[in-house]
Nucleic acid binder design. Structure first.
Lengths: 156, 156
DNA sequence: CGATAGTCGATCATTTCAATCGACTTTGCA
DNA sequence: TGCAAAGTCGATTGAAATGATCGACTATCG
């Protein structure tokens, strides 16, 4: 039931890019900067950001002063979308996928026990990720980062 | 976020074995029979049943009239246990796994957005699978199989 | 023109997955 | 005792996915 590195890096990078957008609206951030800050191999990250761009989540500009930015406001980007873009369907098995259904090899899909259970798992995963908007995630992150720095700031 | 074939086959086979136990208590069922009924490659199924046996979910007897049966009552077998046995941890990423934690490459685990979101996913998956007992699953299956056959039986 | 930065396709090594093979052991029964 | 049925076990295989890297190309700005 693992998320791939691509899916993992995509979310981590997106949080960083969204964070930057929050600090400096209308700015662009470079692949190399994102790679540094997130600890993601730069060349690999390149592929991932490109996929996010082609999927309409990011926009980019080439050349000097170029870089990436969110293609839409963070409240319109949800994690389900992002993970699907890089990892494919969220469903644990294809016969319970709403977005990429494929039949199973079991004798009868209607009464298949595995399917009954995995349908519930799929629904639970989708309920979380399809409703997790980037703005909410970023504010969660911000809250935690803030409580780290202020911890010693007030401790004079 | 896929379940492997092993995990898939394990649950399907277990439902079949549990079903048999319900119909004929104290009986053993052969690999070949399970393979036929569930449409699972026999030699592959062999590996899986062996793992379930070594994991304490099934018991077996060799030789003539040998076969497999549940090692404990179906209300003591949960799907989380079964899936972990064949597929490893349920968590989407190792840094949110309770049973197999491993650190991440992100700069700060505490404030990592990916981790915040995936923790929730992990909890949701575990809440479902660790509480899904085999007896409940089997009765769900039975209900659906029954409604299939009686559909025409009453339709005289 | 030249530096910067994204784009794109190809390639690669490793691991995982799904499955199969063959030899072996245990068991029950004739 | 010997044979057939059935589980056990280790090795191997082929294919695919994964994670990553390389190098050439293109757009943009000053």
């Amino acid at each position: 039931m693992r998320l791939s590195k691509k899916g993992e890096y995509a979310v981590r990078a997106l949080v960083e890019i969204g964070f930057e957008a929050h600090l400096r609206p209308n700015s662009l951030i470079q692949i190399s900067t994102v790679a540094e800050r997130t600890n993601i191999p730069e060349k690999f990250l390149e592929q991932i950001l490109l996929a996010l761009r082609n999927g309409g989540v990011l926009k980019s500009r080439r050349g000097v002063e170029g870089g990436y930015a969110l293609a839409k406001p963070p409240e319109e980007i949800n994690l389900g979308e992002v993970v699907r873009l890089l990892d494919g369907p969220l469903a644990p098995i294809p016969c319970v996928s709403a977005t990429a259904y494929e039949p199973c090899t079991c004798p009868d899909e209607e009464s298949c026990g595995l399917r009954i259970a995995m349908k519930q798992v799929r629904d639970a995963i989708c309920a979380i990720l399809d409703n997790y908007k980037l703005d909410r995630l970023i504010s969660e992150v911000q809250k935690r980062r803030a409580s780290k720095t202020t911890a010693w700031q007030f401790d004079i």
